[in-house]
Design a protein around this nucleic acid. Structure first.
Lengths: 360, 360
DNA sequence: GTGAAAGCGCTAACAT
DNA sequence: ATGTTAGCGCTTTCAC
């Protein structure tokens, strides 16, 4: 104790054993109940203005901060939510995800919630990190991003248990029972492929991302297929190749495509990162973008417009996605009471890589 | 209650009120104390093998998971740490940070710790989110990344209070008192600028990142200055410009540089993202890379090698940074007992953008 | 070897 | 309008 007496005020404030509500109550001359009511803004308890003011003043003087563990033990809720990603690498390989995370975090701030990051890469059939978070009552709810088929079972379990949860990603039929926030990326792929069709392309290749085991990956591939079919063009399996998430995987996937010797005049990349990889692979075999191959990506990541050439892509709005997902979760949690806005539709951003005269 | 009786097992397991240690104790025919000792692997308590086995079996059968709040209230520690970033946008504008986050998260997994994300953008002199996390005892320790000058006061307070903390970023003199994990990026900038000098360049511009109010930004600028000075070249203020974090800011900063009409044959970008912006600005005024301007970045983000041309850059190792920072924090927390590895030195990765014949 | 009992700091129903 | 009291579920000292 005397240890700290010599130190500077900031240190003392932080190091001193934190004040408890009992101390605040004693100093203010009231009971702990009153302190609790005042600090939690419980109305209709008939607390006088004078008492309220005094409690607040004393709490401030003492630098009182309620102990989170005690609070959640007593109240049953933690004020914490988790954002679950399939694999941590996705956080840096996919700028969309990173933006989403940032947005969710900002929204949490506004709602007074804390955000835990959890990845599901080490999960198996038996145990799953995010399920444990729920069962140990570390979190009140969660946002699952871009689920993999393997997660379905666990998610269904949580859904059946009425755990507040938002799943981001379309095309997860097994999850109809709970709240899925997903744009139909299948139909929005139409923006990209349709643009290429409008430019007169017929041989349009697709380099997918994330593989078919991720719902989002499977969906986007279907978007490519359907748009072509609807235009009376049979999607050709030899114009289809899959990468994972990284630019490098897009590079290799495009190389495999090229190695087949198939002819195509346009390429739709499952996302912008894949597109960056594709650009290099195309250029390395002497193909010019867009003169020889028109290229369109998806997501409009911050670097998309700084590609060479700048990338035509479908602008999704990760910030809005994060906000909507978080506000929806907050609604399910009964927190904040903010209305959940509607997600704006993605739109095509035409830049030079697709060779359209509309490029800006 | 009967609500759930009809549902599938997974749902029932999750929805049923979680088993408490009391129930486990009762079912196993022992006291809660024994349950606690067995589950926490407390040795030297003379628990018989039979008892131990039985408790473990019963706990498993009941799907027992200790309540985290109760655990931390009783034990005084939370098993949670925070990673603090100055602003959430940095998470997507700076792939280095995203990689760092992923790595820290992975390391947490291995240590059985949970990771909270916190940003400091809404903080002011009085209140700071990450200080509140500590004072409400939500976290046991934290990793601060790339601190801004404004955070120094709060960090010092925590340091004086002996809060386990690792600050990532070099050149934070005020923080000598506590654990700073930082490579001297000042000296490693030498790799980049030295490379350009070796190639015969004398008029080497610098487009900084993050501004001087971030220690990392100030440091890297000094690296540019010092390397030039040591080579007998006076760093010219008119060849210096600052961006923030984004490619766009690098683009604009480079435009400002060009608008001055100054002549330079090489450009060192404070980080790779800035370099992407610079590439576009240079190209827009008809300058070729590397023929007219040699370009070198910093960080070697995943997209660096997919630039056009591929970017020569200084490869730092965010994954290693994350691991070291987290293991150091774990050491301070007395968790895990894993040795803290040494951070490997950054190295120059020569690609086409600098115009060296050594490019691969 | 095992268990009883005293907290940890807070919330909230109930009593006054 | 304010205070009393009984938990929340766990850890851990101490006694058996």
């Amino acid at each position: 104790m005397s240890d700290f007496d010599q130190e500077d005020p900031a240190a003392r404030a932080a190091s001193r054993r934190p004040a408890t509500s009992t101390q605040v109550a004693r100093a203010a001359g009231v009971s702990r109940t009153t302190v609790s009511f005042v600090l939690n803004n419980v109305l209709d308890k008939g607390i006088s203005e004078a008492t309220r003011a005094k409690v607040l003043r004393v709490a401030k003087e003492l630098g009182y901060q309620p102990n989170a563990a005690a609070q959640s033990l007593a109240s049953g809720s933690t004020g914490t939510v988790a954002m679950v990603v399939p694999r941590t690498e996705h956080l840096y390989d996919d700028q969309f995800l990173a933006q989403l995370l940032a947005s969710v975090n900002d929204e949490c701030h506004g709602l007074g919630l804390k955000l835990l990051i959890e990845s599901a890469q080490h999960d198996d059939e038996q145990a799953s990190g995010f399920v444990t978070l729920v069962r140990t009552r570390r979190i009140d709810g969660l946002i699952m991003v871009n689920p993999h088929r393997a997660h379905i079972g666990h998610l269904q379990g949580l859904a059946a248990a009425r755990i507040p949860m938002v799943v981001l990603g379309s095309g997860v039929p097994e999850l109809d029972t709970f709240h899925t926030l997903g744009q139909d990326t299948r139909s929005f792929s139409r923006l990209a492929v349709g643009h290429l069709l409008d430019l007169g392309h017929r041989d349009i290749a697709y380099v997918g991302f994330a593989g078919r085991d991720y719902f989002a990956g499977a969906e986007r591939e279907l978007g490519w297929r359907n748009t072509l079919s609807d235009a009376g063009i049979t999607p050709r399996e030899d114009l289809l190749e899959f990468g994972e998430i990284t630019a490098r995987s897009g590079y290799h996937a495009t190389q495999r495509l090229l190695a087949r010797g198939v002819r195509f005049t346009a390429l739709f990349a499952g996302n912008d990162t894949i597109a960056f990889g594709a650009m290099r692979a195309l250029r390395e075999v002497g193909l010019r973008i867009p003169e020889d191959v028109a290229l369109v990506g998806y997501d409009d990541i911050p670097l998309a417009e700084f590609g060479t050439p700048p990338l035509t892509t479908v602008h999704t709005d990760p910030i809005a996605h994060g906000r909507v997902a978080m506000l929806e979760l907050a609604r399910l949690l009964g927190v904040g009471g903010k209305p959940v806005p509607v997600l704006p539709d993605p739109r095509l951003v035409v830049r030079a890589s697709s060779g359209s005269r509309l490029a800006n």
